[in-house]
């Protein structure tokens, strides 16, 4: 479900020789992506697009809820994750927005001919290596494992408290989105936005006291 129909990139045009050797989309220059000529007709057309194996609806979603108590301490942890999932993200950038730093820092340019990202255009949506030829360079493996929620608590000894007519006092600290293990560096892997316009999830840390009379 929700798989993509994309051109397959097989690298970046780095030399004039590359430009001579591979068919290219109109307007291609050095620093643009090379697309695979899947039907081998010598031209890059819509017939060269390939359905991706994975879409942005994960085939696997999982969660683990762990809890433990030891003497006056208690601990609960929720891990959450997804697997076998891909998300297409082409940030809407140029004169209209900001680049991911990983693209900006590693972009191909005449002075950085070994750059791992294609050259930048006035608008990514109008670029041969971007919106004009939606391609799998911008397809990210958004599998992740995230420490979604963790809480640690300590209850004060009740003997002491009963004297001041308090039944129970518990000090605790909890946090949301504390750790994320993923290959995605530039954005929240939980997004479903294909232009990276979304509000990322916040990391929240709370400290608190429960008092019961």
């Amino acid at each position: 479900m929700n798989t993509y129909l994309l051109y397959q990139n097989i690298g970046i045009f780095r030399t004039q020789e590359d430009l001579n050797n591979y068919p290219q989309a109109p307007g291609t220059r050095l620093g643009d992506l090379i697309y695979r000529d899947v039907n081998e007709d010598g031209a890059i057309t819509a017939d060269d697009r390939v359905r991706t194996e994975l879409g942005n609806i994960p085939q696997i979603m999982y969660g683990v809820n762990l809890g433990a108590t030891y003497k006056s301490f208690d601990l609960s942890v929720l891990f959450q994750g997804q697997g076998r999932v891909s998300q297409y993200v082409l940030p809407d950038v140029g004169t209209s927005g900001n680049f991911f730093s990983s693209w900006a820092d590693n972009r191909w340019s005449p002075s950085n001919p070994a750059g791992s990202y294609p050259r930048v255009e006035t608008r990514s949506g109008s670029a041969v290596s971007g919106g004009l030829y939606q391609n799998d360079f911008w397809l990210y493996n958004t599998a992740f494992l995230r420490l979604k929620n963790a809480e640690i608590g300590y209850s004060l000894p009740s003997g002491l408290l009963s004297k001041i007519k308090i039944e129970n006092v518990r000090l605790y600290a909890n946090g949301f989105n504390l750790l994320t293990f993923t290959k995605v560096k530039d954005f929240d892997p939980e997004t479903s936005s294909s232009n990276a316009q979304f509000y990322p999830q916040q990391r929240i840390i709370n400290l608190g006291v429960n008092v019961k009379f």
Partner: peptide
């Protein structure tokens, strides 16, 4: 920019 094509 002359990038017209049947799919674009």
């Amino acid at each position: 920019r002359g990038q017209l094509s049947p799919e674009n």
